Structures are given as structure tokens and as C-alpha cells.
Amino acid sequence: MSALRARCPRCRTLTAVAFDELYECHSCGSTFAAGLVRVPRAWGAGGEEMAAAAETELPYPEALVVDLETLAEQSTVLARGLPRRPLVLGGCCCAHVGAIRGLAARHDRLSVVWLDAHGDLNTPETSPSGNLWGMPLRMAIDEGSVRTDDVALVGARNLDPPEREYLAAHAIDEDVARALSGAGAAYVALDVDVLEPGSIPSFMPEPGGPSVDEVERILLEIAAKARVAGMGITGLAPGADPVLLTRLAGAAGL
């Protein structure tokens, strides 16, 4: 499917057409602030629930579905096929790697605000589990898609010792304003496990997180300070409320 043409979620016809960063349906006249990209994959042991949750219905034109055999293929196809303004629905947080790569190629300096209960900063050498979904933020940094100066990690509370060392060595913290300063555009990576358990069904809940209202305020702050070029929502378990997910995407301007 071309990212320029997508199925309208309202009238269900394949007549939503990309117009600059918006989609407009030629049949019913509806407009949408982003194109939906589904990534029904989870790169780790036992992640089938996350993969299934990527099929959650959201009221955005479906512009692209990426379901490939390797993470390398997934990231390459995502980076090349992103609509102008994507809303990526994973799967695990590895879906963000290709999205960040693709958007970084379009902008001189891309900031990343990563909202997650976990750091996702491990490498194959430091990971206790070996699951790739514990590594995607580090992947995006190490491949040069985003600078550490332009990264904020918000809500992390379950970090492995090597991740804590990496954060300290590179001065990565929760300061959204710092990460956005000087950036041409921002990508928001939202793993719903950042939220207090029970807010939205998540694959790997961690106690002590912010409420939906608090995360919404953070997203509104990001949108007020920077141009949000795209957003990804990952880490879902089946049963997530599409209304809540849409509300959070809307707070980021999508």
C-alpha cells in the first residue's frame, strides 16, 4: 500500500489521500492529522500479546502495515515507507527504530521524547534477557538517528545497571525542554507501560507511573514547544481503549 493513499476509517473506502502532512478522504471529506502505520511484531520471547494489540482500531487512515521476518528489514521498510506524519502502532518499542530513522532523514535535527517505564538502552552484551525490545532507544542513538543531547527519557523506573551508567555518562534525563531545545522536529515514543498500571492495558506494567492526565499534559507540553513530526504507541496488551489512545495522540497534535 502506498503511504500516499490509505483507507478512510470513517467511510472505509480506499480514498484517503495524503495532502502535505494531512490525509483527506475524497469520498466523505474527513481530514486526519496523521497516517497510521501498523507494526504487528514483537522482538523478544513471549511478545505475542503486543503483536496482536497492534491491530487495535484507531481513527486514522491506515497507510502502511509492516510485518517482516527480521528487525533489520522492518526498520528499513518503515524508514522508507513512512507517511509524511506517521502515527506508528506497535508491537514492541522496536517499531520506533525505523520511524526515528525515517524522520531523522527528513529533518536536520530530530529530538526524541521516549516515555517508558524501562530504559530500552541495553545492548546485546548488557541485556539480561536478550530481548531486542530492551534495546531500541540505544539502537536509534548508536546508528546516529538521534543525538543523546536531543533525547529525553520520561517515566523510566525499572532500569538495569548498565542503562543507569549510560544515562549518567551521556546526561540523558527527563528534561523535555532540554531535549527539544534547538531541534527542528520531535518524535514521541510512547510505551504505555509508562502509565500507572490499570490506566491502559500494557504488556509489561510497572507500578509508580503517571496517570493518563499527567502523560497528556507532557504531550501537550511537547506539542507546544516543538513540531511533532510523528508519534509511536507501543507496549499495548489487548483490550486497550481506542478512545484513550486517540486522546493521547491528539494531545501530541496528531
Rank of each mutant, 00 (worst) to 15 (best):
Met1Arg: 10
Cys8Ala: 03
Leu14Asp: 09
Ala16Gln: 05
Phe19Asp: 13
Cys25Asn: 02
Cys25Lys: 08
His26Arg: 15
His26Phe: 12
Gly29Arg: 14
Phe32Gly: 01
Ala33Phe: 04
Val37Gln: 02
Arg41Trp: 06
Arg41His: 03
Arg41Leu: 15
Ala45Met: 13
Ala45Tyr: 13
Gly46Ile: 14
Glu49Asp: 13
Met50Val: 12
Ala52Cys: 07
Glu62Met: 09
Ala63Pro: 00
Leu64Ser: 00
Val65Gly: 00
Glu69Gly: 02
Thr70Met: 04
Ala72Gly: 06
Thr76Met: 08
Val77Leu: 06
Ala79Ile: 15
Leu82Lys: 03
Pro83Asn: 03
Arg84His: 03
Pro86Phe: 07
Val88Pro: 01
Leu89Gln: 00
His96Cys: 12
Val97Asp: 02
Val97Tyr: 08
Gly98Ala: 09
Ile100Asp: 02
Ile100Ser: 01
Ile100Val: 15
Ile100Arg: 11
Arg101Asp: 13
Gly102Glu: 13
Ala104Thr: 13
Arg106Phe: 00
Arg106Glu: 13
Arg109Asn: 04
Val113Ile: 15
Asp116Phe: 10
Ala117His: 09
His118Arg: 15
Leu121Trp: 07
Leu121Gly: 04
Thr123Val: 05
Pro124Gly: 04
Glu125His: 05
Thr126Ile: 10
Ser127His: 07
Ser129Leu: 06
Asn131Ile: 12
Leu132Thr: 11
Leu137Met: 15
Arg138Asn: 07
Ala140Ile: 14
Ile141Tyr: 11
Gly144Arg: 15
Gly144Glu: 12
Arg147Met: 11
Arg147Asn: 10
Thr148Pro: 04
Leu153Ala: 08
Gly155Val: 10
Gly155Pro: 03
Arg164Ala: 07
Arg164Gly: 02
His170Asn: 15
Asp173Gln: 04
Glu174Lys: 08
Glu174Ser: 12
Asp175Val: 10
Val176Arg: 05
Ala177Asn: 00
Ala183Val: 09
Gly184Tyr: 04
Val188Gly: 01
Ala189Asn: 06
Leu190Pro: 00
Asp191His: 05
Val192Pro: 01
Val194Lys: 09
Pro197Gly: 08
Ile200Val: 15
Ile200Arg: 03
Ser202Asn: 06
Gly208His: 11
Pro210Asn: 08
Ser211Ile: 12
Val212Glu: 12
Val212Cys: 05
Val212Lys: 09
Val212Tyr: 04
Asp213Lys: 10
Glu216His: 06
Arg217Asn: 00
Leu219Pro: 01
Glu221Gln: 14
Glu221Asp: 14
Ala224Ile: 09
Ala229Arg: 14
Ala237Gln: 06
Pro238Ala: 07
Pro238Thr: 10
Ala249Trp: 03
